[in-house]
Design a protein around this nucleic acid. Structure first.
Lengths: 216, 216
DNA sequence: GCTCGTCCGTACGCTTCCGTACGGTCACCA
DNA sequence: TGGTGACCGTACGGAAGCGTACGGACGAGC
């Protein structure tokens, strides 16, 4: 819905406007004429910068892919501790999830290969990165990968359901659930210190409870 | 793609054909003329049975909703043990997930209220049912609900990613991951017998491993 | 065998969108 | 200050799909 600021439009302007349309209504909403109207321009401008609608969709998808991989990973590079990286990723990831309507829209188009390719790449990079962090925490490569896949499932599922039924994902419930996930799938296999730290800070939490019951 | 069998078509015929279109290409693929062609009929027939395209989409959605709630639950009623019910649900649920392209297609249309309503109902019934089973296993209502939500996340995420990258979900990996989920989120909080049984049957598994490390 | 209601085909207008053709505008540079 | 090329608007043709109008076929009941 942005209006044109300067007199001239760049391909980037069109791609960003297309990304907004993508977030609103999926691939089918990336239509040249409505986007042109939203930009305060006409098709004459569009077909100067792009060959056809297809290339506009691909440009928008590229923008999205980059924001979901490189940008996120670069942002996490500042955090030295892999456990903390995972915490931030789980937290902000799920926090950011509901707002990422583009991904929701993309998950929808089973028959659109360009979107499929990018989703696949994003998923693989996510899982690879998660597995690396888990290995750094002491999990074997095989265990790390299985757990990374499960975390990716949780991420996607949470995003979808948060969008469907926001009540499921209020802040408190989300914190509780994140804690369960952390204890159940992430917590280092041989690092009882961290677990004790968390249990100490939150003595009635799930971890302390399940640990107790397991020792009983 | 079914052809017309008898001379006359029923609304049910149209709804089922629409459901197939829904599975293939999402809501936007539910178009009157193509479906009429697939049925070997024309729009003249369609507009006799339905007021407009909208009502056809809703009929298809109703068909889907029923198959995802009542039908599944009724099928599980035959299993007496709640733990076994959950095992079957996790197993066949994830097994059946990748084939359920309708749900994938529906998750895609954030801006379509009729689909949203039904997805919400399905999600809530799923979570409620899962929570009931978990309570029957000894979890408190609050814990059962959090875990049920997480399992629903896993279900949806698995379905999505299995569709995206089938290699992530080969049978072996899926079995391993299901076991991790079972141990981490489901296994009864006070029932160490079941855990021991599973550990005995699969001594090098994740549960035995993490249990050992937790006792160390 | 006639009638009537059910069911379906054909034909049409309307809208939305894609892509093309072509002419106009404006900055910049020689 | 005239020209050039980047940029954009207008106008058009075509395709796909929605919904309507209307007429024909066909079986059930009288």
């Amino acid at each position: 819905m942005r209006k044109r600021t300067a007199g001239r439009l760049t391909p980037r302007d069109w791609a960003e406007a297309a990304l907004e349309a993508l977030a609103r209504g999926g691939v089918e909403a990336v239509a040249v004429e409505p986007i042109a109207a939203a930009l305060g321009a006409t098709k004459g401008s569009f077909y100067w910068h792009f060959a056809n609608r297809e290339s506009l969709v691909e440009a928008a998808l590229d923008l999205w892919e980059q924001s979901r991989t490189d940008d996120v990973i670069r942002q996490l590079e500042g955090i030295p501790d892999p456990a903390e990286r995972l915490r931030v990723l789980i937290g902000t990831g799920i926090e950011l999830g509901p707002t990422d309507r583009v991904e929701i829209a993309l998950l929808a188009n089973p028959g659109y290969p360009p979107a499929l390719r990018r989703m696949r790449r994003v998923a693989q990079r996510r899982i690879g990165y998660l597995a690396d962090q888990l290995q750094a925490l002491g999990w074997t490569p095989a265990e790390a990968r299985d757990r990374a896949v499960l975390i990716a499932y949780l991420y996607v599922g949470n995003m979808q359901l948060a969008h469907l039924a926001p009540r499921l994902v209020d802040a408190r419930a989300h914190r509780r659930q994140a804690e369960i996930v952390y204890d159940a799938l992430i917590a280092a296999p041989r690092d009882e210190h961290a677990a004790a730290r968390r249990s100490g800070a939150r003595p009635t939490g799930a971890r302390a409870r399940s640990a107790r019951s397991r020792r009983a």
